[in-house]
Design a protein around this nucleic acid. Sequence first.
RNA 1: CGGGGUGUGGCGAAGUUGGCUAUCGCGUCUGGUUUGGGACCAGAAGGCCCCCGGUUCGAGUCCGGGCACCCCGACCA
Length: 404
Amino acid sequence: MRLSQSLSQTSKTFSSDDPTANAKLLTQAGFVKRESAGVYSFLPFGWRVMRKIIEIIREEMNAVDAQEVLMPALVPIEYWQKTGRDNVEIGFQPSEKYILGWSHEEVVTPMGKQRIKSYRDLPFCAFQIQTKFRNEARAKSGLMRGREFMMKDAYSFHANQADLEKYYARMKQAYFNVFGRCGLESFYVDAPGGEFTKKRSHEFQVLTEAGEDKIFVCEKCKLAWNSELEVRKCEKCGGKLVEKKGAEVGNIFDLSTRFSEAFDVKYLDENGKQQLVVMGCYGIGVSRIMAVVAEVHHDEKGLLWPESIAPFAVHLVSLGKDEAAKKAAEELYEELNKAKIEVLFDERDAAAGAKFADADLIGIPLRVVVSPKTLEAGGVEIKKRNSSEVNTISVKELLKSLQK
RNA sequence: CGGGGUGUGGCGAAGUUGGCUAUCGCGUCUGGUUUGGGACCAGAAGGCCCCCGGUUCGAGUCCGGGCACCCCGACCA
């Protein structure tokens, strides 16, 4: 992508009214554009990051045998009436007939019902990555709490509680994998079940001051509890609990038979007897991951994307008006594209300082400079965003190192 | 949903007890000089001052009513 023509553009100024780093940096660096409170457009840079996060989630869901589907955002109101969730305040209701999906138990449960006849059909899990709508009383903190946001939701169906618990453990590991691959250290936190279950649920929390949850983390064993549970001492090791602020990036629930009862989802067991299906559900806030990464990975100059979800692998900068250098930069840009290496090409006629400042703000992991100076030194200059070390290497070496 | 704050060219801001042609920085356009950490000179374009109503000779400024956004709280898949 050529920066001169990109819909993503940086800005030197930003209104300070939203104090969170994700709001400031993602806006200033051209990743997102706010349209309304808690409602954002994703510009080319931001949408690239989102797609990377989605791909990581997709891989991890496939690895636990979850099947990707896509359910409607317009959910008929009679579905919600069956579970008594048609009056939950958080649901947007665009007309008499529909409520915009804020979670999809009401859709996926009948879908499962149609599939399930015998114990042989179980277990299975369906997931989707989709825009969710929630009429939050107060949207806040940039992308952290929106009224429209990208979410991954998964729903598993089991013959019994023991099988659910087995799968729950697999999903837990998959969640740790997702957050870890996105560059986030997450804590597995005991929490209340809210609208979904009377049992406890489990949250995946990333420690950040921008988070809105208070959690207690055990100093000894790293177990954690949501403050709503009022646990005072670590149940396992008796260690002291330290209060931290966290942002919830994922949440998993043991739904038990709440939804299978509502929709009468039963199967025939080995003895030919009807049994209720047991369900679990598993959510990840995809756009919230993007915000939390911005909160956790930035410095005073801008963003620092982990390689796994960076919008581009290389930020290529050409400096000067020297024709030979411009040509060399153009050629390198073409070569990187040919090699399928994602590259942002800053070919603007701007001062070196402005280009470097923008590179720091956007936060692509590797900066490559082509200028008369670097050509004289025999190649291109490379600098990692998270280091001040600058080296000159040949184009050949660069291509080789990127194609690992 | 309660409390507080804000709303002025694309972005960020100033605008005094109401006063004359609404100001500044950044950005944009034209020409020229520049080119390794946010360059310089000269010129130019760009405004329903959030909306509606009122007071007044005169409203960005005062009054009433809306709307929007941000913060704190309550709420919270």
